[in-house]
Simulated scan of single mutants.
Amino acid sequence: MRIVPYEGHDSDSIVELITSIQIDEFGVATSAQKQPDLRNITQFYQQGAGNFWLAFDGDTLIGTIALKDVGDGVCALRKMFVKREYRGGGAGVAASLMQTLLDWARSRGVQSIYLGTVDVYHAAHRFYEKSGFTEVERSEVPDSIPLMDVDVKFYRYCVPE
């Protein structure tokens, strides 16, 4: 497995991986059209302290994770998805993606990272908590954090110096 920053990779495969997990696997009421950021990764994510990473097994895209800089040392964790057959502690894909993002954030002076997620991603909730994120109320999430209509659980990570 290798993790690389997005550099003009095929956006169709990124959209397919993410939407197939959201819609087909978990039944989330969303679409590719509701996520225009996936067709504009460089401008949406790769600004300031932000970035977008892809995990590959050979030439096969198996995971994604993104950090969106919203200013003042605050970022949003977005688009963390791992192909079903690569999930779980044994594969280490999610942990490697998360470590890549947290190391990047720390090296760029990010102070806190927020995320919103849907209620059906139970394993993801446990993973975020195990990774040091704490659940917060929606009212504690800065308005500058981009959220999806379907997000109902919210987390914050305080980046150690």
Rank of each mutant, 00 (worst) to 15 (best):
A91W: 10
P146N: 11
T100I: 05
W53G: 05
T117N: 07
E25W: 04
Q33T: 14
A29C: 11
Q47C: 10
G116M: 02
A94Y: 00
I21D: 05
L102W: 00
V110M: 03
Y121R: 04
L61I: 01
L17R: 03
V152T: 15
L101H: 00
K153L: 12
G27S: 05
P142C: 09
D59A: 12
K83Q: 14
D72M: 12
Y128A: 05
I3G: 07
I62G: 07
V136F: 01
T60W: 01
A29K: 11
F56A: 08
T134G: 12
G92Y: 03
L67R: 02
S96C: 11
P160R: 09
E85C: 10
Y45K: 07
I145P: 01
L147T: 07
P160H: 10
L102F: 02
F52T: 08
N51W: 00
L97I: 06
K83E: 09
Q111Y: 02
L102P: 03
W104M: 08
I14M: 04
F52P: 06
R106T: 09
H9A: 13
L101F: 02
R126D: 13
V28E: 03
Y6A: 08
D103G: 13
F26I: 02
I41G: 02
H122E: 14
Y6P: 08
P142T: 07
S13E: 15
G109W: 00
R138S: 09
I18G: 08
A105E: 03
A124S: 12
L38I: 05
N51M: 04
L77F: 06
D149S: 14
V136H: 03
V74L: 08
G116I: 01
T134C: 15
Y157K: 09
I113L: 04
D37K: 10
E135P: 10
F133T: 00
F26L: 10
Q35R: 13
Y155L: 06
R87N: 04
C75T: 05
W104P: 08
T134S: 14
S13D: 11
D151N: 11
D69S: 09
Y114M: 04
M148S: 15
I14G: 03
T60H: 14
A49G: 04
I41N: 02
R87H: 02
